[in-house]
């Protein structure tokens, strides 16, 4: 429990550090992303206790879907605000996503080296 609190303090501290940098340097990036990059960098430098930070990170990541859910609720109440644009939105989302999946698959098929044999045996049984 104390490990979780220590981890949560690290996460909150890095968010605040991210916000500080965003405000001071006028970065066009959100504080969370800056904090995440700093967190990755800190772990690479082996500073901070990974167990503490992981203890707080895992439950938060597991709860992400619930945390964004209140934001999704709003979409059912904005139908009138975007009247006349829903066709554009639907075509953009469906067509755009199909096209980008196709592009990603083709790019990766072109550039990805063949799998090492250990992985290949795992893939053999989908």
């Amino acid at each position: 429990m104390i490990a979780l609190l220590r981890g949560f303090l690290w996460l909150t501290g890095f968010w605040l550090l991210g916000e500080t940098l965003v405000v001071l340097l006028g970065l066009p990036v959100s504080a969370g992303v800056v904090g995440m990059l700093l967190m990755t960098a800190m772990l690479m430098l082996r500073v901070g206790r990974l167990e503490d930070i992981a203890a707080a990170s895992q439950p938060l990541i597991g709860l992400l879907a619930m945390l964004i859910m209140p934001g999704v609720v709003g979409v059912f109440f904005v139908a009138d605000d975007f009247a006349g644009q829903w066709l554009a939105v639907a075509v953009a989302l469906v067509g755009g996503t199909l096209a980008s999946v196709l592009t990603t698959l083709l790019l990766m098929r072109r550039f990805m080296p063949p799998e090492p044999s250990a992985a290949a045996t795992e893939e053999a049984s989908p």
């Binding site: 968010w15 504080a31 967190m39 990755t40 990974l50 992981a54 938060l60």
Partner: peptide, 19 residues
């Protein structure tokens, strides 16, 4: 919004799987 406040630290937490 009180709940969504946790999205801040949760975004920072994504640095752990990335690492």
């Amino acid at each position: 919004d009180w709940l969504m406040l946790l999205l801040g630290p949760a975004t920072v937490a994504l640095g752990v799987p990335l690492y």
